[in-house]
Design a protein around this nucleic acid. Structure first.
Lengths: 207, 207
DNA sequence: TAGATTGTTAATCGATTAACAATC
DNA sequence: TAGATTGTTAATCGATTAACAATC
């Protein structure tokens, strides 16, 4: 696993330490909390600059701020969600986009008429046909894809044409095979669930 | 990344090939479709037994069935969902549990009274207080945790006491640090989102 | 038999861990 | 100064890739 997949985890734990008013932490203490080796923590943190101090450890608040800025938590990237079925709705209402570098500005769905009365975080559901007009006006830079896999290729083409190249992708469509330059973070819930099935089947989860 | 994290992906692609009535595939063709090296595919598949044939390749249908049985897609583990907010609702209605080795049998929420009229896949929402009675009767073996992180430790204790040791965990509570023997598949959507933020910030996603 | 493609070993690469000198 | 703990190099480990003999 690469360092950057661990950064959000560091950020989370440092946030918890901060909440507890702990201002100082050593790589050894952190390793016990997080389940990495102290060695790896020192190596990871050193990738991005010497945040620690010999004989002292790391300053929780400073380190958290540094990692936060590496992760871009203050960027406020304008973000739209495409697809407002159960998953889209869950993502829209459940995720704290603002705390993680995003600003949710729009939600689109094919069946927007049926959802006229719905507001999620004060945002109404727009019809998918308005995508072009909307994007030229608002200029979002990130799209969250909660669309069925069959509908996704067409949507992605349209978004790319509108200059959107960053995707949080819950569908199974492989964006990078068509647009290698796009930034894509895939969430494959089906694969995750099957991994659990494998574990149970093979690790004696059910006796 | 380990082999087993790739198995669901193989299973998915083989399913697509099957749909297209393709009965035979070589590691080289598969590598082009899936973006792994042919070498890795041969090595992966050979971990679980010699499914291929020299000079011919792999039989799509047979290979898919084999991988399916390794993943345990026919096990039908009885599964309950705890927490029926947006995320729980999305998971309950969105995931095809039956196709992946699970059978959704119950859904629990603290506020079940407010959800008296709701049925998801024919299942009504039970109050969380009924957890013990229900589990002793139905004996589910897997729990999907869509609870807020603060509520999760208590829930996990109760589930472990009821003999449930397999978890699909959407909360941030680290089950394995308390119950090392439990089978846990974590889904950390927040971390995934921050990884995207990092990519955009550092790969020049916004120019 | 000739061609194709696997199974499998060996080589490479990268990531993790261990060790320790630097330094606060 | 002595103790603690980082930064950093070297050693280990595991996973990926390349190569090729086995064989259908």
């Amino acid at each position: 696993m690469s360092v950057i997949k661990r950064l959000p985890r560091y950020y989370r734990f440092l946030g918890e330490l901060k909440k507890k008013d702990i201002s100082r932490i050593s790589s050894r203490e952190l390793s016990q909390m997080m389940g990495f080796t102290a060695s790896q923590i020192r190596q990871d943190l050193n990738c991005f600059g010497g945040f620690g101090q010999q004989g002292y450890g790391y300053n929780v608040d400073q380190l958290r701020t540094e990692i936060g800025s590496i992760l871009g938590v203050d960027n406020g990237f304008k973000t739209i969600i495409i697809g407002c079925g159960n998953l889209g709705k869950a993502i829209a209402s459940h995720m704290a986009f603002e705390d993680r570098g995003f600003e949710l500005v729009g939600i689109f769905d094919k069946r927007s008429e049926e959802m006229q009365d719905i507001r999620i975080k004060g945002i109404s559901i727009s019809p998918i046909e308005d995508l072009e007009i909307y994007c030229r006006e608002v200029e979002p830079v990130v799209a969250v894809l909660c669309t069925p896999t069959t509908a996704t290729p067409d949507i992605v083409d349209r978004l790319i044409n509108l200059g959107i190249t960053n995707f949080w992708n819950f569908s199974h469509y492989d964006i990078n095979s068509v647009y290698p330059q796009a930034n894509v973070e895939n969430v494959h819930l089906n694969d995750s669930l099957m991994t659990l099935s494998y574990q149970i089947t093979n690790n004696g989860g059910v006796e």
